[in-house]
Design a protein around this nucleic acid. Structure first.
Length: 869
DNA sequence: GAGCTCACG
DNA sequence: ACGTACGTGAGCTCC
């Protein structure tokens, strides 16, 4: 359905004027512009949310015969329009003219009547009315919603039949009755004296309409009865006056108000009236638009051939595999495309297998340029092809140059790359596959080639300029191959153990459900935070902490002693998670080989860490004793053992090194427990007198430092006052002055350059640091403090992984590295190789970088992941 | 599809 | 006056 945006011009201008009243704005020549500014902000917001196909702004015209002014005696109540606003009316017209937005007025007709009639005229449109006048709510129906201004100048709220019912308990029709009873001072509608909104709503709930109320005044009593009876005629007339007309002849058609913003005249308007922030915002929108609308590179045509021409088998040719569904573990490869210097071919997989020269080229050392090398390797494996020379992954390159490019979607957006053909169109959706349309899969490949080409042309020079060549060629690309091997190897899973956990967990959940229903006195969906909130805070009357009706574990924990339902809820939550995410959830991912093959995403995080999906094996329970049992389902291959090795305090070591903080460096060199050391320094007590409580608090401070400290965050974490948290932080920064200096330096650098960098030169963009909003800016600072620490630790373990992979190959060990969990590596190990393997791991992890602190990796061995932790 | 909640480092 | 600890992914509810 097409969307129409109808704006009540007068009401919005009034609202804009008063909303910006405290912040007077004017041009250097003294023309007031605050209302225009607010008006433009509101319209921008509405356009952005609604994205209308057609738009019209209606204004009132004709001063003396508005229907509400038939009540001459109330006319005095109508306030004079302030002069500063009057001046801005013509400017608002100018603004709309410049923006290319249609405006309309009719002699002696009010804006709301125009809007009402528009709705009647276009029943097939999805109509959105923007107003600050609640009168308009009477226009709501199945295809019409009214967007009301909330507080501020760009906060709007959609009102529909349902939300009106929910908020006020009435139908759109009853808005007129409401006004009839309570009146509307701003519109000179008197209503019934002493009847305000509350009384009016109550009366409507009981009687439905003004007419019905008047017919049943015998059910009322006291003053209210007197007033209703005395002013019944006035109530009826008021209702009539509050009724918006829908029968005004609209003398134009939709083509005339189709919505196309005209950016250039609008920009000139903003400049003329010195509204710089709006001008800048528009500029960036225009630029963004230009980027997304960049005409696609002329379609590359690739021809299908039976044998690949030798001219294409070059260094730096672009290679695309034609897969029929997104999952690299289940997709079939139907063919491949190869392109070089503007020439491209497509070959079916059968023809590829016949072409000895091509097979040699694919398995050879000439460099290929691809998108998502890990996926290519999996696909090639499934197709029985050997690939080598996979040295350039354009996705990774683009991501290194711009850390915000964490999805295919974002890459395509940035590079203005609109898909002409999608995988779904060619092959159908997984589970509902179809035979590929002839020709279409060639287009699909051609399109991928063009994207790859564009990405690499853009990224290659940037990698040089940004000094990330080594990070790309020597870390990320080799790592991709290592990750591919880990994914392919996977980890063996004992489905029986998962079944057992599921069964036991289910039984406990049933018991807890009964107990919770009993305590609540009703059945409800415990998994619904909304319903749970109603039970806890409304029905049981438990106190809410702060303003929010949050039901999260930390809030519930504070209520533990107050009501027995809380303990059951916390336990329910725990087992619900264990059941659905881990026991049942993981089972879905066991492949026919009895193993789980996660996928590591190398381009998912802002800091340079990996992420793990389908399933996420980086968040398997460990902290809770019962939930930790899932780890018993993670097994080594038959006859093997699992080896897990994790870095000790890696982020704090990295921080001590980067900040060159002697106090911390010394502690690490002497293997002093770092949280105890911090407690001793912060609380100024000797090392041997630090108790568990001090250590716990110091540990939280250390975490805080790594996360980009804030007194609020720390106070929240430790459940102490903000003042006290602040004191802890100050003491910490005094004790470790170089940490303080380092943090300042990182923030300063980020403010100047807009990004931070890790030990290996990996960048994180932090645009928030320049945001005008205080909160956002503070977030930018914390992110800037954290990114080099978290990111450098990620750099370190990546180096370790590459080193270990290489050493395993060189030493001819058959044990495999299979998982990475940020500061931990897990191996599927032959018992006979244990000593050699542990030596390789220790050397690889502890000497991946040489820092001012020793790096320590602790290794454990077990028959399951549970035992090896 | 967004928001809440919770699992991990 | 504002309302926050950093980085992820998945399952659930509800619009």
């Amino acid at each position: 359905m097409k969307k129409m945006l109808l704006v009540d011009g007068n009401s919005m201008l009034f609202r804009a004027f008063y909303a910006t009243f405290m912040r007077p704005m004017s041009t250097s020549t003294g023309i007031p512009t605050n209302a225009i500014y607010g008006f433009a902000m509101m319209i921008n917001k509405a356009v952005q949310i609604i994205q209308p196909d057609a738009m019209l702004v209606a204004f009132d015209k004709g001063k003396h015969t508005f229907r509400h002014e038939l009540f001459a005696e109330y006319k005095g109540g109508r306030k004079e329009t302030p002069e500063a606003l009057v001046e801005q009316f013509p400017i608002a017209r100018e603004y709309l003219e410049a923006a290319g937005i249609k405006q309309f007025e009719m002699t002696d007709i009010e804006a709301d009547d125009i809007i009402g009639s528009m709705i009647k005229k276009y029943p097939d449109w999805d109509i959105n009315v923007l107003s600050s006048d609640r009168d308009m709510l009477q226009l709501i129906d199945d295809t019409t919603s009214v967007w009301l201004m909330k507080k501020g100048i760009s906060d709007i709220e959609e009102m529909t039949v349902a939300s009106l019912k929910e908020k006020m308990g009435i139908t759109p029709d009853q808005i007129r009755d409401l006004k009839g009873l309570m009146g509307d001072a701003s519109d000179n509608i008197p209503g019934i004296p002493k009847v305000g909104e509350k009384t009016a709503l109550k009366l409507l709930e009981q009687f439905g309409t003004v007419e019905n109320l008047i017919a049943n005044t015998d059910q009322l009593k006291g003053k209210l009865k007197e007033n209703v009876e005395a002013f019944q005629a006035q109530a009826l007339l008021s209702k009539k006056l509050a009724t918006i007309k829908t029968d005004v002849e609209i003398p134009f058609e939709t083509e005339e108000f189709a919505f196309h913003i005209t950016p250039e005249p609008l920009r000139q308007f903003y400049v003329r009236y010195e509204m710089n922030s709006l001008a800048n915002k528009l500029d960036s929108e225009i630029q963004q638009q230009a980027e997304t609308n960049t005409p696609d590179i002329p379609a590359l045509t690739i021809t299908e051939v039976q044998r690949c021409p030798q001219t294409l088998m070059q260094d730096n040719a672009v290679l695309v595999l034609d897969q029929d569904q997104p999952s690299v573990y289940f997709a079939d490869v139907h063919g491949l495309a190869l392109a070089y210097a503007g020439q491209g071919v497509y070959m079916t997989i059968e023809n590829v297998r016949q072409d000895e020269n091509l097979l040699d080229y694919l398995a050879g050392e000439k460099t290929k340029i691809v998108y998502d090398v890990k996926a290519c390797l999996h696909l090639a494996d499934r197709a029985g092809l050997t690939l080598n020379g996979m040295r350039i992954d354009s996705m990774i390159a683009a991501f290194l140059c711009d850390s915000t490019l964490t999805s295919d979607q974002k890459i395509r957006e940035k590079f203005g790359f609109n898909e002409r053909v999608t995988m779904d169109e060619v092959y159908g959706k997984p589970g509902k596959m179809k035979l590929p349309e002839p020709q279409l899969h060639q287009q699909l490949c051609a399109q991928k080639i063009q994207l790859i080409d564009k990405l690499w042309k853009d990224s290659e020079p940037k990698l040089n300029e940004m000094e990330m060549r080594a990070l790309f060629y020597e870390v990320e690309m080799p790592l991709a191959s290592v990750l591919y091997k880990m994914e392919k190897e996977g980890i063996r899973i004992d489905g029986q153990t998962l079944d057992d956990i599921a069964r036991q967990t289910q039984a406990r959940l049933d018991e807890l459900t009964d107990a919770i229903y009993a305590a609540a006195g009703e059945t409800f969906n415990i998994n619904s935070p909304k319903q749970l909130g109603e039970v806890l805070f409304d029905k049981l009357g438990l106190p809410t902490s702060g303003k929010k009706r949050s039901t999260s574990a930390d809030v519930l924990e504070k209520l533990l002693g107050i009501h027995p339902i809380i303990a059951d809820l916390l336990e329910f939550r725990k087992y619900q998670k264990l059941y659905s995410t881990y026991a049942e959830g993981l089972k879905k991912y066991i492949h026919p080989d009895g193993r789980i093959h996660t996928i590591y995403n190398q381009c998912a995080t802002q800091t340079g860490r990996l992420s793990s999906t389908e399933p996420n094996l980086q968040n398997i329970s460990v902290r809770d004793e019962q939930s930790r049992e899932v780890r018993k389902a993670f097994l080594p291959s038959e006859g093997n053992v699992l080896v897990a090795s994790d870095y000790s305090q890696i982020e704090l070591r990295m921080l001590a090194h980067m900040a060159d903080e002697q106090g911390l460096l010394e502690a690490f060199r002497h293997a002093v427990d770092i949280h105890t050391k911090t407690a001793s320094d912060v609380f100024q007590i000797p090392l041997d007198q630090v108790d568990a409580q001090h250590r716990r608090q110091a540990k939280a401070v250390n975490f805080g430092i790594v996360y980009g400290i804030s007194d609020f965050g720390l106070s929240q974490q430790l459940d102490i006052s903000r003042a006290q948290a602040k004191e802890f932080i100050e003491r910490y920064l005094q004790s470790y002055p170089n940490i303080s200096k380092y943090m300042d330096q990182v923030i300063e650098f980020c403010q100047e350059h807009g990004y931070t960098a890790t030990m290996l030169g990996r960048r994180r963009e932090v645009p928030e640091i320049h945001d005008k909003n205080y909160m956002t800016r503070e977030f930018g600072k914390r992110a800037a403090m954290n990114a080099p620490i978290q990111g450098s630790a990620a750099d370190l373990i990546k180096l370790a992984m590459i080193r270990i992979d290489k050493a395993l190959a060189e030493k001819g060990l058959k044990s495999k590295m299979i998982l990475q969990v940020h500061d931990e590596l897990i191996f599927d190990a032959l018992p006979t190789e244990l000593d050699a393997l542990c030596a390789v791991i220790q050397e690889g992890m502890e000497h991946a970088m040489e820092l001012k602190v020793p790096l320590v990796a602790e290794t454990k061995v077990g028959k399951t992941w549970y035992e090896a932790k």
